[in-house]
Design a protein around this nucleic acid. Structure first.
Lengths: 211, 211
DNA sequence: TAGATTGTTAATCGATTAACAATC
DNA sequence: TAGATTGTTAATCGATTAACAATC
């Protein structure tokens, strides 16, 4: 019998909430709040204390009964549960506004990820750096992905180029794609794609607002 | 007894899927594919035909038994179900890379939304246009939101300014916020906030990839 | 101690899937 | 007609919430 549950045990809604609890807890730490109750966390997140405790129960973190959770310890255990300790390399493909936003402003290094390359086809930007990350020629993508052992990619290219680019990245070894392009991708079974269609988020919000 | 179910009847997962079906169906139309079966749609979306039929059942669209759904008709009924016919005004606040990406590239007008203003504090960009949308001074936000009857906002400002900006927008009449800033917002009960934390999407993908 | 709060199970609720009759 | 596919209900599955004993 293994000492810990096998990874892959957490369901998508739980993973999602844990990742957001993590950011909230870090906000608490920044405000020098060291302890938090399930009730307080639930208030900020927008759910209820029962769900918070249930989520935390699943990652086998132990709080202090009657005094709540120590933020710093809970952060550690969420990081372990989400597998954020062993570093993963990723790249951003397509340096339009969105690609640049992700490259320059998302703090990957604080969450066990390393943005090790970005790619574009525009000769005017190739060779430059954004947020400390070099922009490479898309033609060299395959080699660089292999060399740097990149396993995840944010796809920020125009729809017309998305499938071809995605095929190339997968062929070079990418296992997970965050797709910001507005088409559905065909990928082999062993590859995960998460669709991040900004317009769909707006539609959902719009629906809620129209009730 | 009302002829149609009251709006607000659709659950969040159903709304989410319907919004994505909509994009897929439009892709089909663009490829001159006029008819689609629940099975074909499920294959592209990545679920199963039973769920597709169940979702479509809920919006009271009638397909043709034995021949599937007519894409154009299904598109129409999804639009109705999602309340995309009556136009809503929205704004983007913060014209960094992300704000510019949303302003320039998200096709709001095709989905019943009108991006009628964007805001920034930088005098170098105020007065310019991006994607046909004028960038106004954030100081004038309150007036412009009221004048143009803006009800939704994409919040793309730095964390340090997010809460203040959000308060201002809500006070001027905004009812729904898509929050791209990395903090939790305190809002009154009648306002909906959707959190779009890019780093959380990466954490979720990373978890899936590490299984 | 009394009060607060967690840990954990059980109950409830809702979402997904299966099944199949109806229909074109 | 036979085959394909929807429409719709029922069954299953999983996620959320409630409850409360345990504990500090």
């Amino acid at each position: 019998m293994p000492p810990k549950k096998p990874s892959g045990t957490l369901s998508p809604p739980v993973i999602q909430r844990l990742s957001e609890y993590l950011l909230i807890l870090e906000q608490f730490i920044a405000q020098e709040q060291e302890v938090v109750s399930s009730r307080a966390l639930a208030t900020v997140y927008g759910n209820n204390s029962s769900q918070v405790r249930h989520d935390i129960f699943q990652i086998e973190h132990k709080g202090s009964q009657s005094h709540g959770y120590l933020c710093s310890e809970l952060i550690k255990d969420i990081r372990i549960a989400l597998n954020l300790q062993n570093e993963k390399n990723l790249c951003v493909i397509g340096m339009g506004n969105l690609g640049r936003a992700i490259t320059a402003h998302v703090p990957f290094d604080r969450y066990g990820m390393k943005l090790s390359a970005s790619f574009d086809v525009d000769p005017n930007v190739i060779g430059k750096k954004i947020g400390g990350v070099e922009i490479f020629n898309s033609d060299d993508m395959s080699n660089i992905i292999k060399e740097q052992n990149i396993t995840m990619a944010a796809l920020c290219v125009p729809a017309s180029r998305a499938q071809k680019t995605c095929d190339l990245a997968i062929h070079a070894g990418v296992k997970g794609i965050l797709n910001y392009s507005r088409i559905r991708l065909k990928v082999p079974e062993h590859v995960s794609v998460h669709y991040e269609q900004i317009i769909c988020s707006f539609m959902q919000l719009s629906y809620k607002c129209s009730l």
